[in-house]
Amino acid sequence: MDVSIINNFTGGALSLLYSAGPVAKGVVIILFVFSIVSWTIIFYKLKEYSRVEEDGERFIRVAREADSFKRLITSYRETPRNPFYKLIYASYREITARQKDNPGTKTGLIPAVENALKITITDEMERLEKRVSFLATTANTAPFIGLFGTVWGIMDSFREIGLRGTTSLSVVAPGISEALISTAIGLAAAIPAVLAYNYFNGRLKRILSKMENASMYIINLIEK
């Protein structure tokens, strides 16, 4: 190893990368991209889910007080992006479509509204789940990508030992520590992704149950 590598022992952990080979650098860059994207998803989804949960709470508060579906529609005014508003809108559209020809009829109305609500819930959950799967991808692949960089680096440093014919610590250590940093970065990218993925899954379940509750409220109010 040349002077610069040993110098780097006094530098920070990542300064080891200055002297790393192209494979190690490529691996680290890929891992950084993974990490940046997964953190973007984490921030974005945190914001989105907390907003959806707030909307759901507000919806249930309004639905408890409302005594009819008409009342619910008039009192719950929201942005069209709100999934709970979408539930109301879907059921309203279904009712108006059914009652256009013979107004006042209720036969077969409830199952039709139920189906419409189910479709809406599935659509909305799909939208909310979008990109969360990338977190799972990061969690699964980032350690392996890092491991690949490490194995490659250790291969390199062993070849170096063979070429030099010495096995002293000063020859072996820099190569190995340089190689290990890619595993470290891989883990650093994967661990937050795993945590966030599990957390978001729990939150999605809560949102789903809230939406199902909301659809029950809507059906009850229609039946009244």
Binding site: T40, I42, F43, Y44
Partner: peptide, 9 residues
């Protein structure tokens, strides 16, 4: 959020 995450990195 992408920009914020990049800056944090």
């Amino acid at each position: 959020w992408m920009v914020i995450s990049t800056i944090l990195h």
